[in-house]
Design a protein around this nucleic acid. Structure first.
Lengths: 132, 132
DNA sequence: CAGGATCCGCTCTGATACTG
DNA sequence: CAGTATCAGAGCGGATCCTG
């Protein structure tokens, strides 16, 4: 992106984030920063369509309550789809939507950069602790 | 990014996020998703070096307590720098570090995409509400 | 199997008051 | 000016028990 494009981008961003879109704030903003959302989207992106229990198995440390909440929010915002099969015992499968795949594509470079910058973050923190 | 690069990216990401880096989770992950962090980084990125009171003026709705907390965390993780001038009354200026500028560059395309996808998110939510 | 309901400790946040 | 300190309320997140 050129400097101009970045400025335009930020104008668009601020228009969206500011005022009367506070609902989007606590939602989409949250999907970006939320550990569980990221894992759910990642898991579905890599392994494809998957059922509830399988998701929980693949995402270490998540409780069923948090997973439920997380998939509900992702479904509500159109990032994943939820399919219920009328069987006994019940079967529910989750899958990335095209919007969700777009999200994954957009978020990947950022996370890659963070992963590659971990040492710099650690060093920064080290310096900060010392200076205190 | 090619599919291979995306897979490699996610391997790197998961290695970083999983286990023994839970401190990084609640920190860097938070900077990405946190409304205030984003505004602080954005404001400093667009307007350059700035003092505390000016930041608060530029960021609508933030309380001084939250701004303090936010800049402390950003400083700790090396995204912004804090300069104190030994004057009376005191003057403190904040500025993006090169790491912080890197962060801004990385996060911009993602936010641009989100801003441009707002209508799709709204529509998704509308459908979800109806189906309930 | 895929969750809903409940209890409970903890953190996050805002509002207000005070200080070097 | 640039914070710190304190109180109070809302919501997060885990653990446990229950159900169609």
């Amino acid at each position: 992106m050129t400097d101009d494009e970045i400025l335009n981008a930020w104008n668009a961003i601020c228009k969206v984030i500011n005022k009367d879109n506070d609902d989007l704030k606590s939602d989409i903003l949250n999907h970006v920063g939320n550990k569980w959302s990221l894992f759910v989207i990642h898991t579905l992106g890599v392994d494809g369509r998957m059922r509830f229990s399988n998701l929980q198995k693949n995402i270490t440390g998540i409780s069923q309550k948090m997973l439920t909440k997380c998939v509900r929010e992702l479904e509500r915002d159109g990032l994943i789809s939820r399919t219920v099969y009328p069987e006994v015992p019940p079967r529910v499968e989750y899958e990335l939507t095209s919007l969700g795949r777009g999200f994954l594509v957009q978020v990947t470079p950022l996370w890659y950069w963070i992963a590659n910058s971990v040492e710099q973050f650690k060093e920064a923190r080290g310096n900060y602790e010392k200076s205190k």
